Amino acid sequence: MLEIVRVPVLSDNYSWLVRDTGSGATMVIDPGEAGPVLDAAAARGWRIEAVWLTHWHPDHVGGAAAIRDATGAAILGPEAERVKIDVLEQGVGEGDRVMLGDQQAAVLSVPGHTAGHIAFHFEEAAAIFTGDTLFAMGCGRLFEGDAAQMFGNMQRYAALPDGTKVYCGHEYTQSNGRFAVSVDPGNDALVARMAQVDRLRAAGEATVPTTIGDERATNPFLRAGTVEEFSRLRAGKDAFKG
């Protein structure tokens, strides 16, 4: 149903080329820069028709204008952040449904990292694009929101089916995992996963996408039972030097 291609951009960002295999419709999520995304699409003979944005940070929107200018792609993103995204054309928010060809994605409001952050959930394809909210073994920093908001996001993500693939915006897994092990050293699944992550990174390989099932087993932020526990973990990660 969906063909999804990871495109490394900038220093540690990932943009995602997404194609509906039935219709051929293609879009990119969070293009931090244009060149690598346009090259990846051209190498596959794909034409980018849309740009979807999860939030306003420059490392997620920086390539949107150039991609629009090169392809005519329409730019869609959080209506709540319109004033910060000068290239935004179609604004969306909680409860909206957006289409990529024949595939429908639900828009989720997931504030905390930024005030208007959104995620895109393709329920039928069991794929969710979480931007800078949920990471492999981690979560986003609280720049414009609070712990209660991000804890709510984690609870919402944890309720998704285990097999849901999570496509996030950064390669942060190794540092996230080091913190996770420091606060949950007796978690055998976490220790085993961290060993696999270390092997992948030593070989120069990516560690995402992840799955909701893996995150429920190993991500301390997704496993936190209360806002207070989540808040302590987030403060600990912010100060972590490992």
Rank of each mutant, 00 (worst) to 15 (best):
G77V: 05
V191M: 03
D69A: 15
T218S: 09
F240A: 01
K165A: 15
L38Y: 03
G242I: 09
A195E: 15
G112Y: 09
A70I: 05
G45V: 02
C168D: 14
G242Y: 04
Y172K: 08
A74H: 11
R82V: 02
T54A: 06
D102L: 12
G77H: 03
G22Y: 02
T133D: 15
I118P: 00
T164P: 13
T218L: 06
D12H: 13
L134H: 01
A40D: 00
A43P: 01
T26V: 14
V197H: 02
D238G: 08
G213Q: 08
W16C: 07
G145P: 03
H55I: 01
A50M: 07
G145N: 04
V181S: 14
P36A: 04
L222F: 11
R199E: 15
L38T: 05
T71D: 09
R68T: 04
A217D: 14
V5R: 08
A25D: 14
R234F: 00
E123V: 13
A239K: 12
A34T: 03
L88S: 06
A50Q: 15
A105W: 06
G213P: 15
A41L: 03
V197M: 02
P8Q: 12
E171I: 09
R201D: 12
W16R: 08
F129Q: 01
C139P: 03
V51E: 04
V181I: 15
F129V: 06
P8F: 11
P209S: 05
W52R: 11
G163S: 14
F151Q: 04
V37I: 10
G140A: 10
K84A: 11
A202E: 15
G24H: 11
R234Q: 15
D198I: 03
E123H: 04
D146L: 06
D30K: 12
G95V: 04
V9K: 09
A105N: 07
R223I: 06
D214T: 14
V98D: 01
G225M: 05
F135G: 08
